[in-house]
Structure formats: C-alpha cells, structure tokens
C-alpha cells in the first residue's frame, strides 16, 4: 500500500520535474517532494503501524525514490545553469576585430637608437664609453691627432671656429686624444657624440652629425685585431652573414689606414638601390694608431700598438632605415619620429 503511494509520488514528481521551466520551479518541486513537509516525508511518517521487516522494505524503497527525485532535480538545475551561462556568454560577446586599448610609447630618436645599438655591441666587446666636450681645443681636435698645421680640414671652409684656439669638434677623436693624455694603456674605449663641419644642409650633408669612434691601445694589438673587431661589429650590426672588405686609405690619425665596406645588408651583395648596384656599402674608416698620436699621449710606441676607427651614425641609420635625406633627422616631424617606436 505504502509502496504504491511512494511509487505514485515518484512518478508524479518525475513528470513535474521534467516539465519544470525554471530554476525557481525546480526548487519549488524539491521542497514539495523532498522538503521537511514534503510529500515523501509525509508518507514516511505513516510507517508507524508496519512490521520491522515491512518498515525496512518501505524505508529502503523510499530512500531510492528520494535519491531518484534528488538526481532528477540536480540534473534539471545543472541544465538551467548551463543554459543561463550560455545566455550570459552570448550577451557578453565582444567584437574581437575592434582595436585594442593602447598606451602608446614614445620613440627614441633613430640616431639615439643607432648609437645605442653600436654602443651595446662595442661594450659587449669590452669597450668602455668616454665623453668629451663639443667645443674643443684646436690642439685636441687636430694637433694631437697628427693633422698638421696645413691640413686642409683645418680650413675655415671646413671647420667652425669659436676662437683661434677653440672650435666645434669635427670628430669625436679628440675624446681619444684626451684619454691617451689622461690614462695609461691598456685602453679600450668608444666615444659616441655630436660633431660639426661647415657643410650646407642638403640631402646628404648636415653641419651637425654624430659619430661613434673607437680606440684600442695595448701590448700586441695588431691590424688583424682591427679586422677581427670591426668584422664582428659588422656581423652584429648588419646580420651574421655580413662580409667585410678592408681597402687601403689615408687618415692622418692612423698608419696603415683602411676604409671598410660591408656586403650590402639589404640585398646580401647581389646589388640593389641601397648599395647602388655594387653589392658593397662603405661604412667606416679605421687604421693602426699613428705613432705620433701615441707619442703625444706619452705612450711607448715600441711597447704599445693600437687601432682606431670612426663610424658616421647618420650614414648607418640612413642605410638601415632606407632614409634618403639626412635632413629628416633634424626636422623632427612627429610622423617621422613615430615610425621608430
């Protein structure tokens, strides 16, 4: 009798749970059938007149029914939760093609970036940074660097003068002269900085530009070391496959002297617009430090040898970024600068 009642409740409950259309309705049904005053509980209260055996049987059956109803409700609830979540996700869907919210970083000037890159490479090879004044003495800029009193670069058509004894440095090598005068070998320095020459601005000339110059003085420094150092620089600066070509040249500061070409880093040496079809690009001048220069620094030229080099930063930056007019660097149009972010 009781078992039939329970069975009836179970069937009725299952039917109504299946029909339930909301979480709230499901909860109502749980209370109705399984709550403290629920229908199943009510029936169990009438078990008083039963034999222990019957009671055990009925109890067992009632528990099974309870679990069945509970499971059915839980499943139903899960189903509703899942559906609700889906609706929420749908409502929260974004258009992934809309632009992101950016905090725009500014850019270091391309010249600064190029100097920083060169500095990093040379510092990794043990070169320390050295700085010096931009208004220099004629002595440091020319005499100490073995440029004789009649050297054409001293002309007023080439060099800006402040007085007959001071000028705007035409190279950063005077920093090297200062270092030679103030420090003892071994020396390994680079001096990046601003230099000045009497050139009217046009696409390839600027009266203000930047150089990175380097100096190594120690016992046993050879021209082979010069080749090795600058070849390594070229590979790090322009790519691991970069080849270098050392051509004899002449500078008052060095003897022997060389100009260095690198295989074109745009076309790999096949010939293109950047290398003007030759496959090679001239990037720097260098050589073994002239004994006169070492002597001015009071250095024993029999014991010590050294090499030096000078690189024009604007030239490298123009080649690297394919900028065809040097004046762009000093116009500082924000649309130009922003490209180097």
């Amino acid at each position: 009798m009781l078992l039939d009642d329970i069975r009836e409740i179970l069937e009725e409950a299952q039917k109504s749970i299946d029909k339930a259309e909301s979480m709230e309705k499901s909860e109502e049904l749980r209370v109705k059938y399984l709550g403290k005053k629920g229908e199943l509980t009510k029936i169990l209260r009438t078990m008083g007149g039963l034999t222990p055996e019957e009671r055990k049987k009925v109890g067992q059956f009632a528990n099974e029914a309870r679990n069945a109803i509970q499971n059915r409700i839980t499943d139903k609830m899960d189903e509703f939760k899942k559906r609700q979540q889906e609706l929420k996700f749908k409502a929260e869907t974004v258009d992934v093609t809309e632009p992101g919210k950016v905090h725009v970083l500014g850019a270091k000037h391309p010249i600064t970036q190029t100097i920083d890159e060169m500095t990093r490479i040379f510092m990794n090879m043990g070169f320390s940074l050295a700085e010096g004044p931009e208004v220099e003495t004629v002595f440091m800029n020319f005499d100490a660097l073995n440029a004789g009193p009649n050297h054409p670069s001293r002309d007023m058509t080439d060099t800006f003068y402040i007085t007959d004894k001071t000028l705007l440095r035409t190279q950063t090598s005077p920093v090297q002269a200062r270092t030679l005068l103030s420090q003892d070998p071994p020396l390994r320095i680079i001096s990046p900085g601003r230099v000045y020459r009497c050139d009217t601005p046009d696409a390839t000339h600027s009266p203000v530009f930047h150089q990175v110059e380097g100096l190594v003085v120690a016992e046993g420094i050879t021209m082979a070391d010069l080749k090795g150092t600058l070849s390594e620089f070229a590979r790090q600066m322009f790519g691991p496959d970069t080849k270098t070509k050392f051509r004899p040249h002449h500078f008052p500061f060095t003897e022997p002297s060389a100009e260095v070409d690198v295989s074109c880093f745009k076309c790999g040496g096949k010939g293109c617009k950047v290398c003007k079809g030759s496959g090679w690009i001239e990037i720097l001048g260098c050589g073994m430090v002239h004994p006169n220069v070492l002597r001015i620094g009071g250095i024993d030229t029999e014991k010590y040898t050294g090499f030096a080099f000078g690189i024009g930063v604007e030239r490298i930056a123009m080649l690297k970024y394919e900028i065809d007019d040097i004046r762009m660097f000093y116009e500082n149009d924000e649309r130009f600068l922003a490209q180097f972010r």
């Binding site: 500095t119 040379f122 510092m123 990794n124 090879m125 043990g126 070169f127 320390s128 940074l129 050295a130 700085e131 071994p186 390994r188 190594v216 120690a218 046993g220 420094i221 050879t222 021209m223 082979a224 070391d225 080749k227 090795g228 150092t229 070849s231 390594e232 070509k245 050392f246 051509r247 004899p248 060389a258």
Partner: peptide
Amino acid sequence: YDRLPVTLPAGGSAASMTKNE
C-alpha cells in the same frame, strides 16, 4: 688587406658606461 689574419684583441676588462650617459 684581405689576406691579413682576423683575430680579436686579447685581454681586456669589463666595459663601463659613463654616469651621464
């Protein structure tokens, strides 16, 4: 010049940056 050997300078010490820079 192309036939000269290619080496790196021996020795050297840790590089330093100026405070200003």
